[in-house]
Design a protein around this nucleic acid. Structure first.
Lengths: 162, 162
DNA sequence: GCAGATGGGACACCCATGTTGACGTATTAT
DNA sequence: ATAATACGTCAACATGGGTGTCCCATCTGC
């Protein structure tokens, strides 16, 4: 054990840079897919993120959304006010804890989220199909490793919880 | 062929949403890794993106950087002015076309880029190591599929060209 | 050699989205 | 009763995008 083990080849600089760049451009392109639709509605990406996660987990309390998005109350407040004014999101009082406001989409909001998701599905689905199922598994695994542990549970529960 | 072939299972909504979410959180976390260092320098992420790609392709003309980053001349100009003022980036006249300004990092700029890259390498390397080489290949394949074709060549040439 | 296209820089101005800090109120927990 | 929590809201500010306009140097095609 006196000899330090060499980094595997895929941990060398070019391979890391390739990942960094593909992640940057891939992310940019995915998010770019919804810009036209958002603009038609006069909304921005911040609105979409809120819309998206509320769709994923109806009756999500504000505090949970704050933790997911990792932004301040003020920033989220602006966005939620907009979405409520435009009748995309409504909130009701929590029954277990009446201080909480549980967020959910209105039918209008749900329709918009669906439309936006279709654009994402088109991009992501094409990439999945082009790469194949095995690649998709690897894609998930690497990204999971990039996400801090405490968030992994939260993300997983988006699927099971809804 | 009269029967439409069903979508493969990995193209269904939950699998697409999983990719969308992991890509969002993974990207957030990767970029978050350099925020502290950038703040120490009084720079933002926009500065880092310019720094990064200039490091990747020394003597890159401004127009090429504009195409890569997909922002306006005005936005890039602000960033490049900052970087030049702080002696991180220098430019010289192109010899083939003297209208061009070829950008490269100064030694100081190069040292900063290296420091920032180390933070990225730590995150991305940990994710690679956790997922394994096969997963990394899949990760690349899916992301390549997300990137528009004309950009793929440009990204590929970052590796061969430097 | 000149006209038009191109590369680059700069101006003023606006918008979206993030930040901090402070404060208020309802509700829950100790 | 008091402290902590969940939420909302105010003012003020920073960053990093965008637009439109104008300018200069230089290259290219006719």
């Amino acid at each position: 054990m006196g000899v330090p083990s060499a980094s595997p080849l895929f941990l060398r600089e070019p391979e890391i840079r390739r990942g960094v760049e593909l992640l940057y451009f891939g992310y940019s392109h995915m998010t770019g897919a919804i810009d036209k639709t958002l603009e038609k509605q006069g909304l921005g990406r911040a609105h979409h993120r809120a819309l998206y996660f509320i769709a994923r987990q109806p009756d999500m309390p504000v505090s949970e959304l704050l933790r997911l998005l990792n932004i301040t109350k003020q920033s989220l407040g602006r966005v939620l006010t907009d979405l409520a004014d435009r009748n995309f999101v409504e909130s009701r009082q929590g029954q277990r804890d009446r201080r909480q406001r549980l967020l959910r989409l209105t039918p209008t909001g749900s329709a918009l989220e669906t439309e936006l998701f279709e654009a994402l599905r088109e991009k992501m689905g094409a990439a999945y199909a082009e790469a194949g199922q095995e690649s998709v598994t690897g894609f998930w695994r690497v990204l999971e490793g990039l996400v801090p542990v405490h968030l992994r549970d939260r993300i997983a529960s988006l699927n099971s919880g809804s």
